[in-house]
């Protein structure tokens, strides 16, 4: 029997919050485990997911009415200093307790699985970042580079 053609998935990661960081990494590592070829294009706030340290990736209870809270929290209270750090700490504890992988681990698995991770050069220039602020083993490119792969992909996601 002929080997089926290798499937491809192209992902755009455009968000830099803790909750929105998970879907690209989870889907990418899983697709790679299924034998798919995967590329993730990190643009705008998604670029933060390629920084050497992911410690600044946080979750905000503000403008996030669906976030489960131990006690109902008025919006004004959620905007107080320290609430974002508190929500992030609580979420990370939950993640650990339920055996969900850390972002760092998932990202390392992406590198190990040869998932091509592309940092958007335009965003780097726009925010005046330096390539030295990002992890090793990634590529730098633009929209045309992403579309070349996405044009052949079976699954394309904007996250």
């Amino acid at each position: 029997m002929e080997e089926p053609r290798q499937k491809k998935m192209a992902v755009i990661a455009s968000k830099g919050t803790l909750d929105m960081a998970y879907p690209p990494f989870i889907l990418a590592t899983t697709a790679a485990a299924l034998g798919w070829e995967v590329q993730i294009f990190f643009t705008f706030y998604g670029l933060q997911l390629l920084r050497k340290s992911l410690k600044k990736i946080k979750i905000s209870p503000l403008a996030n009415p669906a976030m489960p809270m131990p006690v109902p929290m008025p919006v004004l209270l959620a905007s107080m200093p320290g609430m974002q750090s508190m929500a992030t700490t609580m979420m990370k504890q939950k993640i650990k307790k339920h055996g969900v992988a850390s972002l760092e681990d998932l990202r390392t698995m992406c590198l190990e699985a040869d998932i091509k991770m592309i940092a958007c050069q335009m965003t780097i220039d726009l925010f005046e970042f330096k390539q030295s602020e990002f992890i090793e083993g990634i590529d730098y490119g633009g929209a045309a580079m992403f579309l070349e792969f996405a044009g052949e992909a079976d699954v394309t996601l904007f996250i």
């Binding site: 989870i26 590592t29 899983t30 485990a33 299924l34 339920h98 055996g99 969900v100 992988a101 698995m109």
Partner: peptide, 30 residues
């Protein structure tokens, strides 16, 4: 004790250590 996608990722890794025809047992709680 592991949640999605870790059981699958670890299964894939464990299978890569085996030869064709060998059997892998996986115990999960998810």
């Amino acid at each position: 004790g592991l949640s999605c996608p870790l059981p699958i990722l670890k299964t894939k890794k464990a299978l890569s250590d085996l030869a064709s025809g060998q059997v892998l047992k996986v115990v999960a709680t998810d």
